[in-house]
């Protein structure tokens, strides 16, 4: 079972939910893994504290032009959709920061003057937490725009993906890195806050889940601030609200210090086990219909 935790708006509590969920399931002796796919700002490890013992580079192949063989014909620049190769004054220049690593230039070169060399986009780190959660995250290199290849490689770590319950902590937003994180999930939990910003971004995130054809439910965090717009919207579109976590200074302060929700509020352990059963139930309803 693969469950992703997502939200359109940032800072709604995805990581708080994902880490508490993983801990609750692990304590109940499920085999559980957690993948932090927010490779631009990965934070789950702060709350899970895994012992990292598995590391892997994420590379992309970029072109390298042999000036001797290159005739300056310009076909490589013509096929590159990303302005990463420029032929000017008879010379072929490569700008790695623009390259998507598609290999099109290498394939098209009539002189076979292009070879490919690896460029590091980021790294993956994995390890076991004290509670037995199998954990993995990706870290995007500073200045590197391409998050998607790092996410997709993390999702290919088989020992993580083979767990009974795979939890995926998604980045915020509604575009490519989010889609890459959510692809292949059986269920998506959308975390939001009950404010106009939260509602606006929940709509966006819900549309992503619909586009992917993956069933979804909602957790409202910081309940008590804002207004009732989110609840009304969920009722309108038939989104189930699984949990409402109130705005409490104690929770906010604890999270700020790097404590997990279950450390601050042990009573949530049961609620997350309930959540898992509710998701299974929700999925069996989807199956039957």
């Amino acid at each position: 079972m693969k469950i992703a935790i997502a939200s359109g708006k940032g800072g709604t509590g995805k990581t708080t939910i994902a880490t508490a969920f993983a801990q609750a399931l692990s304590r109940a002796e499920y085999s559980v893994s957690l993948l932090d796919c927010d490779v631009e700002g990965p934070n789950s490890h702060i709350f899970i504290q895994p012992e990292f013992d598995q590391f892997e580079d994420v590379n992309m192949l970029i072109p390298s032009v042999d000036d001797e063989t290159c005739t300056g014909c310009g076909q490589c620049a013509e096929v590159c959709q990303f302005h990463a190769i420029v032929v000017i004054g008879g010379q072929t220049l490569v700008f790695p920061e623009m390259c998507h690593g598609c290999g099109s230039c290498t394939l098209i070169c009539p002189e076979e003057a292009i070879t490919e060399i690896p460029k590091r986009l980021g790294i993956l780190e994995g390890g076991l937490s004290q509670e037995g959660i199998r954990f993995g995250h990706g870290i995007l290199n500073i200045g590197e725009p391409m998050a998607v290849p790092v996410i997709s490689k993390l999702k290919k770590w088989q020992d993580l993906m083979d767990a009974e319950v795979v939890l995926i902590d998604s980045p915020p937003g509604a575009s490519c890195p989010v889609v890459e994180s959510l692809r292949g999930a059986d269920y998506i939990i959308l975390v939001t806050e009950p404010t106009p910003f939260g509602l606006h971004d929940l709509r966006q995130a819900y549309k992503v889940t619909q586009e992917l054809g993956i069933p979804a439910g909602v957790i409202i965090n910081r309940d008590g601030i804002g207004d009732t717009g989110v609840e009304q919207y969920c009722e309108e579109v038939g989104l189930q609200i699984f949990m409402q976590i109130p705005l409490e200074r104690k929770i906010g302060q604890g999270i700020a210090q790097g404590k997990s929700l279950l450390e601050i509020k042990p009573e949530y352990e049961n609620r997350f086990l309930q959540l898992y059963l509710q998701i299974i139930e929700a999925l069996s309803i989807v199956d039957r219909s």
């Binding site: 000017i88 004054g89 700008f95 623009m98």
Partner: peptide, 14 residues
Amino acid sequence: ARGGAGPQAVQFLS
């Protein structure tokens, strides 16, 4: 330009 402003500007000047 998001990236490669320098080379693109040079191509324009050229």
